[in-house]
Computed example of a mutant assay.
Amino acid sequence: MKNEKNKSNESLTSPSSISIQNREWWTVNETLKQGWFGRTTLYKLLNNGSIKSRLIRSDQYAITGKRLIHAPSVLAFIERSEGMDAHKADFDNTNLHEQGDR
């Protein structure tokens, strides 16, 4: 009986079973595991619109939700940052993208 339950779970396609490189949206933790930047820098980039994200909530009045990061915008930011000294980068520059694009 236990083996049958495991087989049925293995056949389901869950987001975690799909390679992160093949997905358009990543969780915050998946983004951080890539090692490109830390949590504080990630949230600065999200706040100034350099990286796009969406907050998924159960309804409009929910207090908590799941933040998803738009993978192509992360990769585009890294491409734009090529050769940039991370310590001199202006992560607070809100002119990179419009705030509404997040």
Rank of each mutant, 00 (worst) to 15 (best):
Lys2Val: 15
Asn3Arg: 06
Asn3Lys: 08
Asn3Cys: 03
Lys5Thr: 15
Lys7Gln: 12
Lys7Arg: 09
Glu10Phe: 03
Thr13Ala: 14
Thr13Gly: 06
Thr13Met: 14
Thr13Ile: 15
Ser14Lys: 08
Ser14Glu: 12
Ser17Lys: 14
Ile18Met: 05
Ser19Cys: 02
Ile20Thr: 09
Ile20Phe: 02
Gln21Ile: 11
Glu24Thr: 14
Trp26Ser: 06
Thr27Tyr: 01
Thr27Asp: 09
Val28His: 10
Glu30Pro: 03
Leu32Gln: 13
Lys33His: 10
Lys33Arg: 06
Lys33Ile: 00
Lys33Leu: 07
Gly35Trp: 00
Gly38Gln: 12
Arg39Asp: 14
Thr40Gly: 06
Thr41Pro: 05
Tyr43Phe: 15
Leu45Arg: 03
Asn47Met: 01
Ile51Cys: 05
Arg54Asp: 06
Tyr61Met: 05
Ile63Asp: 14
Ile63Ala: 10
Lys66Leu: 12
Lys66Arg: 13
Leu68Met: 08
Leu68Ala: 04
Ile69Cys: 03
His70Ile: 05
His70Val: 06
His70Ala: 02
Ala71Asn: 06
Ser73Pro: 00
Leu75His: 07
Ala76Ile: 02
Phe77Tyr: 15
Ile78Asn: 04
Gly83Thr: 11
Met84Pro: 00
Met84Tyr: 10
Ala86Gln: 12
His87Ala: 11
Lys88Asn: 13
Lys88Phe: 04
Ala89Val: 15
Asp90Gly: 10
Asp90Ser: 14
Phe91Pro: 06
Asp92Lys: 04
Asp92Arg: 07
Asn95His: 03
Leu96Asn: 06
His97Thr: 08
Glu98Thr: 03
Asp101Leu: 12
Arg102Asp: 13
